[in-house]
């Protein structure tokens, strides 16, 4: 479906968000957001600066997709989750390096960069953040 072809300009515009998790920090009220908005959703200040967000967080809620949209057939079933980062900012993304049946609320995760979608056989390949479980550490 043509409306769903990955287009390169819109991906390129968002590389700092998709590779580095750059969000917004309101210098007026201290609220952090993802993505950065021109106007703070809490205090409506326009004094919102770009800030790199923490790369670790935990799963707030999740779902396992069984009926994918075009372009995600290969990954199905896959887990999508709302993640709360260590500073309280929320982001949404796919979980990786985990069996979907092992996902649960509260799971500790960290950001990683993975292939998210491709645009046909000869089109662009888009990489972006996904979240993987933290390794068990001593």
């Amino acid at each position: 479906m043509w409306a769903y072809k990955l287009n390169i300009p819109s991906h390129w515009r968002l590389l700092s968000e998709r590779y580095r998790l750059v969000g917004g920090y309101c210098e007026n009220c201290g609220y952090k957001m993802f993505p950065r908005q021109k106007v703070c959703p809490k205090c409506r200040s326009e004094n919102v600066k770009a800030v790199e967000l923490p790369k670790r967080g935990k799963v707030i809620t999740y779902t396992i997709v069984q009926t994918p949209p075009r372009g995600f057939e290969y990954y199905t079933p896959y887990a999508l989750a709302i993640i709360e980062l260590e500073d309280g900012t929320r982001v949404f993304g796919q979980l990786t390096d985990i069996d979907p049946s092992d996902v649960q609320e509260g799971l500790e995760v960290e950001m990683t960069i993975r292939k998210v979608r491709v645009s046909g056989e000869s089109g662009a390949i888009a990489y972006a953040y996904k979240f993987r479980p933290l390794l068990e550490r001593e």
Partner: peptide
């Protein structure tokens, strides 16, 4: 089904949800 799923997902945020494989049912499932 895949195309219908993509069309319905235009109700959600393309850059921050749909790009990552969100379908409209998946958001409601959460």
């Amino acid at each position: 089904n895949e195309d219908m799923s993509s069309a319905l997902a235009t109700a959600a945020d393309y850059d921050y949800e749909v790009f990552f494989g969100a379908t409209f049912p998946s958001l409601n499932a959460m």
